[in-house]
Design a binder for these strands. Sequence first.
DNA 1: CAGCAATTGTTTAATCGGAAACTGTATATA
DNA 2: TATATACAGTTTCCGATTAAACAATTGCTG
Lengths: 138, 138
Amino acid sequence: MAERSLNEHLSHLLAQANRHLSRQLTAEGVSLDQWRLMKVLSESGGLPMGKLAEELALNLPTLTKLVDRMVQDALVYRVPDPADRRKVRMFLSDKGAAMLASQNKRVEEHEAKVEDSYGNEDAQRLKTMLESFIKQIV
Amino acid sequence: MAERSLNEHLSHLLAQANRHLSRQLTAEGVSLDQWRLMKVLSESGGLPMGKLAEELALNLPTLTKLVDRMVQDALVYRVPDPADRRKVRMFLSDKGAAMLASQNKRVEEHEAKVEDSYGNEDAQRLKTMLESFIKQIV
DNA sequence: CAGCAATTGTTTAATCGGAAACTGTATATA
DNA sequence: TATATACAGTTTCCGATTAAACAATTGCTG
């Protein structure tokens, strides 16, 4: 059977799509991981580090340091869990919520542009497929 | 209109899918970028750094250092372009070709497993959609 | 309940990545 | 042809990521 070329490989296609989109967002002033972190916290505040790392597919040491920086910037804060003192529960600050709101707008605008030019029905289908794909491979 | 949740955002879904797949390949002993680089060179040897960086969505300084490491390991080599001495043309060494072959096998096996469990027709459609999506956003 | 194992998260040391400045070469313009 | 401008890569400096070791707390088992 014939050898597959690079753009027939899912791993390559995902890397390319991810990097291009992530770069474009960076250019809009949005750090993808910071935004995703704040967004998760806005949807379910109080998550411990471990769950957060799972939700974002970050490893724990990386997350610890990302959180350190965001705590410095007062975007999020840590609350030790009284029931299990190993755990640290994370929350979004007011400042974080404000920044999230502004970044939400930029992300939505940018994705709207991208999805429009790609075709909205196709974009919707792509997202649905990616969602179920992620469930499969996790 | 209602606020979109994180998994309705393409940027998040792509980041998740990419990271999970990339991690699983790392666990199989395949560095995604190194593999992609070798694969590009096997398909079109002699590409200059700039084109390579484009093909892989890497920025030039990052690519320079990735290539430095791979030259150390004798997987690839540089050849200055005599027609334009600013350019450096990259080639895959025999050792690189051997390593590529072995890694191709692991990538193909892993993706086959993943695509089987996801459903092969859907996987094919997903790849096609990603390919045209990338064309759109680049 | 004493001691050992598992868990949750952080720290450390080394590697890697990115933005900006820099080197060398080619091209355009006067 | 001299000077300026654009182009191709690399280097530098700093911030970010990773794997491995570590600390603290909880849970299990004899």
